[in-house]
């Protein structure tokens, strides 16, 4: 396996002066292509901040961050936006779908925003993903009317739309009941196995973490295990 992503000596502070808070303190981490990794750690350990930086939504205060051989610390906002669109998918705890759009429209968004329109090819791909997520009957359903589990599966389909190398999932099952949570995790495991997509899943749930081949524990802003 080759390294997909690498961060080293990552520091992140918020605020300044007496209010300055150190969240990441020299964290180093490497993710291999096709890995399915759980990110564990107590609240406030820096998991979400790490995911945000890895997702190029935020820059570290200092340190090195590369993915697919590109230095993402030096890249500007436009370059990061394009990189994020092409290579990184997100699944959030609260699904974060666009409420005024249908399930299919939500799924094809990452492609449509790049292409400037919803191409027929994108709609076919989006429909296939929704069918794979068990939502074939909900393709044109308004996303606001879907159940919590269905919304999260739409969010997973959206994250996979552009065939990204890396999917970052922040507590993807944290807002779901046990049955829905296991359905979502089964889907993630299936995609990881079939398509070789790399997953980094932040979770508090040991059972969810046990489904991942690798576990990383973060504490006090560093990888501790």
């Amino acid at each position: 396996m080759t390294a997909l992503l690498e961060v080293s000596d990552l520091f992140k502070t918020f605020g300044s002066g007496e209010a300055e808070t150190l969240v990441l303190s020299g964290l180093s981490l490497t993710l291999q292509e096709g890995e399915m990794t759980a990110l564990l750690g107590p609240s406030g350990s820096g998991k979400s901040t790490l995911l945000t930086i890895l997702g190029t939504l935020m820059k570290p205060t200092s340190g090195r961050h590369t993915m697919l051989g590109r230095d993402l610390v030096a890249a500007n906002d436009a370059a990061l936006t394009e990189f994020r669109n092409l290579h990184i998918g997100f699944v959030f705890q609260f699904h974060n779908l666009l409420p005024d759009f249908t399930a299919l429209e939500n799924v094809v968004f990452p492609t449509a925003v790049r292409e400037g329109r919803e191409t027929p090819a994108a709609r076919i791909r989006g429909r296939e993903l929704l069918v794979r997520m068990g939502l074939g009957a909900r393709v044109d359903f308004p996303s606001a009317k879907l159940s919590g589990g269905q919304k999260q599966r739409v969010a997973v389909a959206r994250a996979l739309m552009n065939r990204p190398e890396l999917v970052l999932a922040d507590e993807p099952t944290g807002n779901l009941d046990r049955v829905s949570a296991m359905q979502v995790m089964d889907l993630i495991a299936e995609i990881n196995r079939d398509e070789g997509t790399t997953f980094l899943i932040s979770t508090h749930d040991e059972k969810i973490a046990s489904l991942c081949a690798r576990q990383i524990v973060v504490g006090d802003g560093q990888v501790t295990g």
């Binding site: 394009e82 997100f90 974060n96 409420p99 990452p110 925003v113 959206r158």
Partner: peptide, 16 residues
């Protein structure tokens, strides 16, 4: 604002 944030996270540029 939350929707704008999601769009930006999904790769929508500021110009969009």
């Amino acid at each position: 604002r939350p929707e704008i944030g999601i769009m930006r996270a999904m790769g929508a540029g500021r110009g969009f």
